[in-house]
């Protein structure tokens, strides 16, 4: 693998071929926000807050830093009026689902995103897929997955797997940028394995 030289926010950056723009930026201390990225997981490209401007031979386009591979002579700008506008718009769309997420509110402050731009849709999950992918790619347990698709897509635990694996692991909990994952887990726990004592009490 040979090295590639590119320019990020005016800095010359040399990284091995196959590196993503996000990794290249972070290697020289340039911060690019992400919501669905995790260094142990394959790049996903779902949240789109890491969009950056990439200029090559005079043509500029927006690319997702987390999935776009570096190219020689690529000129990357991680902030611009347009980038900020897109990030703001993405954040506002997500805040409609999880208005109280600490991570989202932090980013919202930086990009001037409003929590109430869109009608609230309190589903809490922002579909970053971190839990699903972590369980599949790192733990290889597939205890949590996506069900349905599009605007009806949801995460769901598979009770049979969750019963065996999750109590001892719960590594995905801290990955969740909202509080939905924990809630989903509590739900599957209570539905699949009601505690006899509690059940008795409510029925009695």
């Amino acid at each position: 693998m040979s090295d590639v030289v590119l320019h990020i926010d005016g800095k010359d950056v040399t990284v091995p071929e196959g590196t993503t723009v996000l990794e290249a930026a972070r290697s020289v201390g340039i911060a690019v926000p992400t919501l669905c990225h995790h260094e142990k997981l394959a790049p996903y490209g779902g949240c789109r807050v890491c969009m950056v401007e990439a200029e090559l031979r005079g043509a500029t386009r927006l690319v997702a830093a987390c999935t776009h591979p570096v190219e020689p002579e690529l000129v990357v700008r991680t902030r611009s009026e347009k980038i900020d506008r897109i990030r703001r718009s993405v954040l506002e769309l997500l805040l409609a689902h999880a208005p109280d997420s600490t991570r989202l509110r932090e980013l919202a402050r930086e990009y001037g995103a409003r929590r109430d731009r869109f009608e609230p849709d309190a589903s809490f999950c922002i579909h970053c897929g971190l839990c699903v992918r972590y369980c599949a790619e790192v733990k290889r347990k597939f205890a949590v997955g996506f069900v349905d698709r599009g605007i009806r897509k949801e995460i769901a635990f598979v009770p049979e797997i969750a019963a065996k694996e999750c109590n001892a692991c719960k590594e995905c909990f801290e990955l969740c940028p909202t509080s939905y994952l924990q809630a989903a887990f509590v739900l599957v726990e209570s539905l699949a394995f009601p505690r006899p004592a509690e059940t008795d009490r409510t029925e009695g």
Binding site: G46, C47, V49, V90, H97, H127, R149, G150, I151, R152
Partner: peptide, 18 residues
């Protein structure tokens, strides 16, 4: 298109919904 969005990325899934 909202119905047919796969739901993977935010601008399409959430943007089209709005």
């Amino acid at each position: 298109l909202t119905e047919e969005s796969c739901g993977k990325c935010v601008p399409c899934r959430e943007g089209l919904r709005q």
